[in-house]
Amino acid sequence: MPQVDPHDTADIALHGITVRYGKAREPVTAVENVSLTAAPGEFVVLVGPSGCGKTTLLRIAAGFVTAAEGTATVRGGAPVPGRATGVVFQQPRLFPWRTAGGNIGFALARHGVPRERRAERTEELLARVGLAGMAGRRTWELSGGQQQRVAIARALAGEPRVLLMDEPFAALDALTRERLQEEVRTLAVTSGTTVLFVTHSAEEAVLLGSRVLVMAANPGRIVAELEVGLERGEETDVAALRGTPAFSRLRGELAAVMREAALTPSG
């Protein structure tokens, strides 16, 4: 039987990616010869020290950054901002002059949803992230966690098959972060969405990811991969999962690999 190239079947496929910044005569190589894939429905997490290129790779998948070398495809085509992906940043980046519903309605309009359908669809999306009935709330009336929920709902407005998340919970308090982690993982399980997620946290990576890629810096490159393999479903109790021996073992293993990667000499 002929071998199937995983890049041909992946929702996200980065191959031989190198990114350089700065002047042409003295460029800084931010990422060098990185390849990764995310299969349909897979939740892939990127971890590593600051400056190792995690966000750069996510921005390439989003179509915000062009690589100096290598190829990038999302669902079989070149990445185009907003076309096949939803993106959630560390900060919500909502329009402050719009309501929660107005922020989502703007995204729905961009994706061609008819005006008469937008109010109903907005309520559906807000309910999906636990904010039912809050379409009329101004952004400044919302807590940080609620704002990030609106940002997630906005990213889902175009019904993307691929969701890119750049440390979306880093600025939140511990309780809100845990709640949103559970909601995002449930969304991924129930919708079959492919997720590429950036974090610094070993615990968050093991909790959410089906596979974790560990990066080192100077230049950014993938130095290790961990298959998580924890059973999860719609009814999974995330709090209970955190207390299992398997979770503790994987978290410790990943933390050790991340410490080693942070000390890895430049390639």
Rank of each mutant, 00 (worst) to 15 (best):
Arg179Lys: 15
Leu207Val: 04
Gly112Cys: 05
Ala109Gln: 14
Arg221His: 14
Gln91Lys: 13
Gly102Arg: 05
Val162Glu: 04
Ser210Ile: 03
Glu183Leu: 15
Ala205Val: 04
Gly158Tyr: 05
Glu116Asp: 15
Glu159Lys: 13
Arg98Pro: 01
Leu94Asp: 13
Glu123Pro: 01
Arg118Trp: 09
Leu196Pro: 06
Thr139Phe: 11
Ala174Leu: 13
Phe89Trp: 03
Ala157Cys: 02
Thr139Ala: 10
Leu94Arg: 12
Arg115Val: 14
Gly192Cys: 08
Pro160Cys: 13
Gln146Asn: 05
Leu131Glu: 05
Thr99Trp: 06
Gly133Phe: 10
Glu123Gly: 14
Val195Gln: 03
Arg110Gly: 01
Ser201Asn: 07
Met215Trp: 06
Leu94Lys: 11
Phe95Glu: 07
Thr199Lys: 03
Arg117Pro: 04
Gln147Ile: 00
Gly144Tyr: 01
Asp166Glu: 08
Leu156Tyr: 02
Leu108Cys: 08
Arg161Glu: 15
His111Glu: 03
Phe106Gln: 07
Arg117Leu: 13
Asn218Val: 02
Pro96Asp: 10
Thr99Met: 09
Ile222Phe: 10
Thr176Ala: 14
Leu131Cys: 09
Arg117Ile: 06
Trp97Leu: 13
Val113Asp: 03
Asp166Cys: 04
Ser210Lys: 13
His111Phe: 01
Pro96Phe: 08
Gly136Trp: 07
Thr199Cys: 06
Asp166Thr: 04
Leu180Arg: 00
Met134Ser: 13
Thr190Asn: 11
Leu207Glu: 03
Ser210Arg: 15
Leu142Gln: 04
Val189Tyr: 06
Leu163Asp: 05
Arg121Val: 12
Thr176Ser: 13
Ile104Met: 12
Arg177Met: 02
Arg121Met: 11
Gly158Ile: 09
Leu187Glu: 09
Ser143Ala: 11
Arg110Phe: 05
Leu94Glu: 12
Gln91Trp: 06
Trp140Asp: 15
Gln146Cys: 07
Thr193Val: 14
Phe197Gly: 08
Val129Met: 11
Val195Leu: 07
Pro160Ser: 10
Ala155Lys: 06
Val162Ile: 07
Thr199Ile: 09
Thr194Met: 01
Ala202Asn: 11
Pro160Ala: 12
Pro96Tyr: 08
Gly102Lys: 05
Glu120Asp: 14
Arg138Glu: 12
Ala171Gln: 01
Phe89His: 02
Val195Ile: 14
Val206Met: 08
Gly144His: 02
Asn218Ser: 13
Trp140Glu: 13
Ala132Glu: 13
Ala127Lys: 04
Trp140Arg: 14
Ala155Arg: 04
Arg138Pro: 02
Arg177Val: 02
Glu178Val: 01
Arg185Trp: 10
Val198Glu: 11
Leu213His: 07
Val113Glu: 03
Thr186Leu: 12
Val129Trp: 15
Leu163Arg: 03
Arg211Phe: 01
Ala107Cys: 11
Thr199Trp: 04
Val214Leu: 08
Ala135His: 11
Thr194Tyr: 01
Leu175Ala: 12
Leu196Ala: 07
Glu120Thr: 14
Leu187Gln: 06
Ala157Tyr: 02
Arg121Ile: 09
Met134Pro: 02
Arg179Asn: 10
Arg137Trp: 10
Gly105Leu: 10
Pro160Val: 14
Thr193Arg: 10
Leu207Asp: 01
Gly101Met: 10
